[in-house]
Each structure stands twice: as C-alpha cells, then as structure tokens.
Design a binder for these strands. Sequence first.
DNA 1: ACCTGAACACCGTTCAAGT
DNA 2: ACCTGAACACCGTTCAAGT
Lengths: 224, 224
Amino acid sequence: MDTRTGPPRRGRPRRGQEPLSRRRIVDAAMALAEAEGVERLTMRGVAKHLGVDAMSLYNHVASRDALLDAITEAVLAGLRLPAPSGDLEADVRAVAGAFRSAAQQYPRCATLVLTRQLGAPAALGPTEAVLAVLDRAGFPPGRAVHALRTALAFLVGSLMREVSAGPAFSGADVEGAQQREVELRASGLPHVAAAAPDLAVCDHDEEFEFGLAALVAALEAVRG
Amino acid sequence: MDTRTGPPRRGRPRRGQEPLSRRRIVDAAMALAEAEGVERLTMRGVAKHLGVDAMSLYNHVASRDALLDAITEAVLAGLRLPAPSGDLEADVRAVAGAFRSAAQQYPRCATLVLTRQLGAPAALGPTEAVLAVLDRAGFPPGRAVHALRTALAFLVGSLMREVSAGPAFSGADVEGAQQREVELRASGLPHVAAAAPDLAVCDHDEEFEFGLAALVAALEAVRG
DNA sequence: ACCTGAACACCGTTCAAGT
DNA sequence: ACCTGAACACCGTTCAAGT
C-alpha cells in the first residue's frame, strides 16, 4: 500500500526535498482536481500526494475553501490576454479565445472559476483587459460595464456547458449520439423529436462560434 | 437539544404522521438547501428535519447525488412556460422571465440546475418550449438548436451571477458599494479605476434587461 | 517556524436485524 | 415493505506537542 501516484513519501520530509509551500500545494491540488474531480479533492489527498501530513497544509492555506480560491486565482492568472487592437470583433474573439483556452486546459478547475464569485481581486486583470477592448472600440464608460457583463454571461454559460459536458457530446461516441437521438425522438415532445438529430450532438467549436458571432453582432449594435 | 426547526421527532414515526416519501424528502431537502446552502445539505440533516433515521432516506433516494438530481428536477418542473405567440421578442422574454423567476424563488437550488448537466430528461420540457418559440418565429430546425444553445448560455451565465452574488450588489448595502469603489479605484488598473462607480454595483434587473435586449437582437439578426 | 499525531465532530453509505 | 442501529471508511479542522 505504498505504491501511489506521485511522490507519496511519508514521515519526515526527505532531506533535499523541495520544502512545502503554498505554490506546491496549489499545483498538486490542481493536478488532483483535474484527475479526480474537484468534489473529490481532499486535504488529506493533497497531503498524501505531497508526502506530507495533512495538517501541514494548514501552515500555508487557511482551509479547503481557501485552497479552492487559490486554484481559481491560479487559473485566472494563466489567462494570456492580448492587447486591444481597436477592432472590436478581433479583440472580443481574442479575449473569448483566451478564456476558452484556459477552460479547456483545466476543465475541472474551470468550473470553480465559473461558479465562484468572480468579484475577487483575481478577476480584476481580465476585467481590465475587457474594459480596455471596449474602451478602444468606442464604448462610453457606463455602457462598457453592461457590455462586459453581457459578454461574461455568455462566456460563463458557454464554457460551463463545454467543461461539464463529458466527451460524449464532442462528436466521438457515435453510438451514444444515436441512442440519444432515439430517446429524443421517443420523448413525445414534437419539437424535441423533430430536432432530435441536432440535439443529440453538440460540437463545442461550432456552438461557440455561433454564439460568439451573435455576441459580437449584439455588441456592435449597442456600441453607441 | 430537542428543540430544532421543523418537526424533529425522533425514534419511531408518530402514529398518524405523514409517511416518509420521496416527495417529502425532496421538499425538505430544498427547504434546507435554501436555508443553509447546498454544500451544507446533508443526508443526516434532512433525516433529522423529518424526524427519521438517516438510513430511511435510502428507501426513497439512491444517494445524496440522486437527491441533488431530484432537486434540480423539482426546480425545472416549477417553470411555468407560456405558449408561443409568434412574436420572437415577446416569447423569448417570456421564457427568459420564467427561468429567472424560478431562479429567484430558489436561488441556492438554482445553482444546481445551472451547474449540473441539463441534458437529463428533466430539461426536455423547457427545451421543447424554447424550440416551439423559435419554430413559431421562423427559425429553420438546425439554426433553432444553435439559437437555443446561445440563449441558454446567456441565461445560465446571467442567472449564475445573479444567484451567486450576495445581496451586497443589489443596490442595498451602500457603504459596501462605496468601499468597493475605493478599492477598485486603488487597483492601479486604469480602465477598472475609471469604471469604478459602475463596477462597484450591479443592478440585476438592469443587467438582465440589457443582456436580454442584446440577445433578442442577435436572435432576430440570425433568424434567417 | 514549520511539521506531526492524536483526537473531535462530523460525513455518506452498507448491512443485518427488526417490525 | 419500510425503518432502524451499529458499523465502516472516510472527511475538515483544532490543539498540544515535538523539532
């Protein structure tokens, strides 16, 4: 019962081993969350993964909840947001793409970012980037905040679907899609049955593109 | 330690007392979730609230997770979706309003609906209603599913913000808003600082209206 | 200053036993 | 058929003790 994933050394830390740090804890937690799911992320599990007593973690993070906050900060810090060019469509696409890339890189941790309050300081960087885009594109200040929140709502909703939908909908799992189509057709709901082939699958690239085009058009119409 | 909220009778169920049922369990769970938060919703807590042994619940729900599924089904079943009139804007507003009302009635349970996969049979009713609206408004079948998913993304993102933002942003808590404005101004981020008064508050009615108008315009542009 | 071990007050859930 | 009690295998976290 000693062979686990990672470096599960027990007892005193090995001499020459990296000392415990907030950074190492957060990295390990992110890896574990991606591997097992956030809801199965456990203080004791993180500690074991680091070869350390569970209680040692509390010298670096205040609680499990604080650790989840730290994970969302790390995900947000990984966003690579481009400087605004002045072209609204290109800039909105760049920002949306940066969010989507981060969500795809850490799909399970991303749910934390999408779920938890993004009001914290960690979200200020992205907020600044989007406001810069909107300002550069000619939005007056008040309307820029409305536009920011509309764009964020669309992004949050889109990425939530994408990260929480299993790979079942991606286009692989053909017989899964076929079975779903049969069920939809048998639902007794006329419009659902008629749209069964389209509802049974979900190409995330395509859906994102469709929604993004609609968002851009809406923002352009409201620029003022 | 016997005086608790609800009917916390212990031991054998009282003669003449309503027998335990899936329905009663789900109702109690929803009430508890709204009172304490979903993450604090506990099988043992639900049982105690019903004056019953924790294990008895498992005769009616398979697991805690199944109970959470049942809650999302109950919330979705509470949606009162109007019949489509043919006026795209009016119909989209009606559907969006129905979702928002349900989310406002059960803000904490609503996060379950917004977070979990809405692919389950429980979401088929709302799907049918939205597809009916889009069909009536002239969307060709394939495009209707894209439009459905775009609308849903906006709704999920918007309602997620609304239900997970405390009452702090509603417009009450004036000194909270003032303090937030000061912090934003001191952030060192130029656009954030400039937009501080707008960012410090969030009128959910106003944001929803702004986003909904954008959504309707986008859908009309894409109707085909 | 940081790490540890034992302990506390919880969890969800299984299972055999009751009625 | 439904409910119960004891038990199992976990949790997060506190605290006094070690180094």
